[in-house]
Design a protein around this nucleic acid. Sequence first.
DNA 1: CTGAAAGCGCTAACAT
DNA 2: ATGTTAGCGCTTTCAG
Lengths: 337, 337
Amino acid sequence: MSSNSRKSGRVTLQDVANKVGVTKITVSRAIRTPEKVSESLRLTILKAIDKMGYVPNRAASMLSAKQSKTIVLIVPSLSNGVFADVVRGINDVMLSQGFQILLGHSGYSLLEEERLIETYLQFGIDGIIISGTHHTERSNRLLRKSNLPVVEIMECNDNAIDMSVGLDHAQAGYKMTQHLIGKGYKNICFAGARMDLRAQLRLDGWRKAIWETELSDARVLTSSYASTYQMGADMLTEILGEWPDTDCIFFCNDDLAAGALFECQRRNLKVPKDIALVGFNDLDICSATNPKLTSVCIPSFDIGEQAAKLLLKKINGEPIENKHLDLGFIISERAST
Amino acid sequence: MSSNSRKSGRVTLQDVANKVGVTKITVSRAIRTPEKVSESLRLTILKAIDKMGYVPNRAASMLSAKQSKTIVLIVPSLSNGVFADVVRGINDVMLSQGFQILLGHSGYSLLEEERLIETYLQFGIDGIIISGTHHTERSNRLLRKSNLPVVEIMECNDNAIDMSVGLDHAQAGYKMTQHLIGKGYKNICFAGARMDLRAQLRLDGWRKAIWETELSDARVLTSSYASTYQMGADMLTEILGEWPDTDCIFFCNDDLAAGALFECQRRNLKVPKDIALVGFNDLDICSATNPKLTSVCIPSFDIGEQAAKLLLKKINGEPIENKHLDLGFIISERAST
DNA sequence: CTGAAAGCGCTAACAT
DNA sequence: ATGTTAGCGCTTTCAG
């Protein structure tokens, strides 16, 4: 019967109950299980809630209930269009099921990722979707110890912590390179920035295809710095300086490829006649530039959607047929090759 | 003395205390106020915490303590490079002060924004940073009733809920248009997609400058759909069809301007000789394309940083000299004009 | 430096 | 259809 709003300054269930003249559990029921409260009372309560500006305290619910109806999504980058699509896919599924999504971005730093994991674990979440299958040792420990459902996305990997939804980046790199070789390119260069594990795998695929056809595997340019358009332009310059007979460059992402294309325009190099350019991810920009860029199209939205569905199943204790989903990729051939 | 891990399956303070042979409050102190626990005990406790994989339950802390040390940031879009910078600025300040950041994105929907506000309010946050000064009526009510410190960003506006950090978009549109008029352009078109309030203000600024010089204000093309490169290309096509003598287009953002530039390349139109193109935001792509794009550079990172500092002051009850910070803008003139 | 007791706001389980 | 009781895991007094 006491007014609880002394401490927090926040309106509580008790405050509303006092106002209406019922007990707090009735107010709680009016919100969560309206069919268990008589219509007239319910309307009175709902009106009071609205008028008083009552907002449930999720911390308190979380403490007494088992589920928080909240999951966490950790991605390396927010500005990367690929993850924007992944987020949409996850949102679509989770929101419709009444789940909230907490979003974290690590800026491609595994240590920041670890910090995020630790932080979000404190929020009593019901599950985690996280990018990649490579984390710090401590991150792995935290995730395992948490006993929470974990879906690792983008890659599809048997040594994932629990479940995984993604694609085989080595295979994608391999197939794209094969495709380029098939088109007659002889001096194919691989260029990548911020060589995270997935970029590394793409390079591995490139190497495999190059080796199989006994072409030279010398043309590799990598940087640990971030991918930017400028970096793509610089890489083109460096590659043409180092290996002037390069006839095709396979960039590990679209930003680099687009940056290189702009540099070609400045140098009056014809793409693909003088040099062919290829990206990865097939972002919007690929079908916007002149010429349009060939790229590897990955099912970003589907990855998000499937990951969310998988996580939900696990949370709800439903049986899971396949813990690892390989959603594949498509080579989008355009005018740059 | 009871093992609390029956319900949640989670390791609790009590579990650690049992293991070490102390009470839970001592464990709590070993974490939060280590100087109040003897060194040897502290080390034992810390070791046990690490070994048992204990993770504090923030919901419980939030219930008993007053502060949650968590703030929320709501932006319209994550893939927009402007907000990526804002997020960095806020992160830099808040993380160093031990605050966590919950990130929400509304996809430019005011209703989704309202949903996010309602959701995050439930988490017992200490403050909110939100984009724009225009929200649904219910959003405004929720924010006001919450009694939480609120900083509205991007715009700088006296009718903000509480504090605001941003710039004057109408002024930016006005100054850029004046600049274009000064360069001798006569038939200046304004083109904008997803005409949110800020884009609207830029258009207002354009109009004011156009009116002052008695040029024609007829050349306005807007769309409520999202900005994409393709949309920029389509807009260029439409503008040249409708008003063939247009000599300059001021786009409400860089994506559109870049898309239009690519279309010009396809049509063999020389920029800026045949037509000048201008963007807004000055994202990376502006200094990457050929020719580089003229744009309005806005202090995204600073906006984030200042907003965070302002919010912190308010949270800590410090005096605030200026509730509204106008951080200005710079016209980045490049080769496209 | 360590402990005991009380309570944050809510919900589950069991009454009535 | 509504109320009572107990307790989620933690922090805040207040004691020792």
